[in-house]
Design a protein around this nucleic acid. Sequence first.
DNA 1: CGCTGACCCTGACGGC
DNA 2: TGCCGTCAGGGTCAGC
Length: 270
Amino acid sequence: MPELPEVETTRRGIEPHCVDRRIEAVVVRQPALRWPVPGDLAAQLHGQRVEAVERRAKYLLLQLGDGTLMIHLGMSGSLRVVEPGLAPMTHDHIDIELEGGICLRFNDPRRFGSFHYLLPGAPTPLLDHLGPEPLSEAFDGAYLYRRSRGRRGAVKNFIMDGKVVVGVGNIYASEALFLSGIRPGRAAGRISAARYDALANNVKRVLTSAIEQGGTTLRDFVGGDGKPGYFAQKLLVYGRAGEPCRRCGATLREVRLGQRSSVYCIECQR
DNA sequence: CGCTGACCCTGACGGC
DNA sequence: TGCCGTCAGGGTCAGC
């Protein structure tokens, strides 16, 4: 579920409830996530104070006194603040109980999410090869143009590659390509610098707009405050195959690229 | 290095 | 009503 805007929405939702609070208890009901949750997670976190809630790519990073709790929401995960003592529902896998009666609850039906605890200096193979943040200055059209030279794969797969740029998933890749008038299946290495300028700008625009709307809720996404996002109402192509293009009226078409569905307008996107 | 497909898991939905 | 195939916002990994 979550792409960068949903993770950022979660970060902003939980941050004010977490910072400066001490972790009093951690309950792991289901340790079989994308990677096994360390058996000593509760002992490692106990008593530590949350100093900051940060984000890198789609990872949430809770900076603690001694180390970092790294959380990924996977495809169907959510992290929200609930009343302490609230009975856990199906797929409520982990609780982090903070002083002051705050309970951070992790729910993830598909269990593609993950929890890692990192001590300073520990290897971080999951973070080491990530590309730049899409909302940073390092990410622009010139960067995309340079990285794409010689690549024959589809441009949509290219911008969804975390080694190229992080945080751009299937929804926002589809939307940004539509806004840029680029067909998702076009070879990445055969797109001009000018068109990559447009694409980089549209990636930034669509992500920024989605963050302002609290993310995209398709079925089940809720932010840290338990509320859904409202960007779904603004989607132009994602999930709209067979429906009319909002710009020209042509019937939107769907293709599969890299095992993911990709919707585009044959008139507006070349 | 770049690209493809398998795989991890549960749930929703459509067709029969 | 139930069974079966397909698909879903994520990402890693093996193999070529």
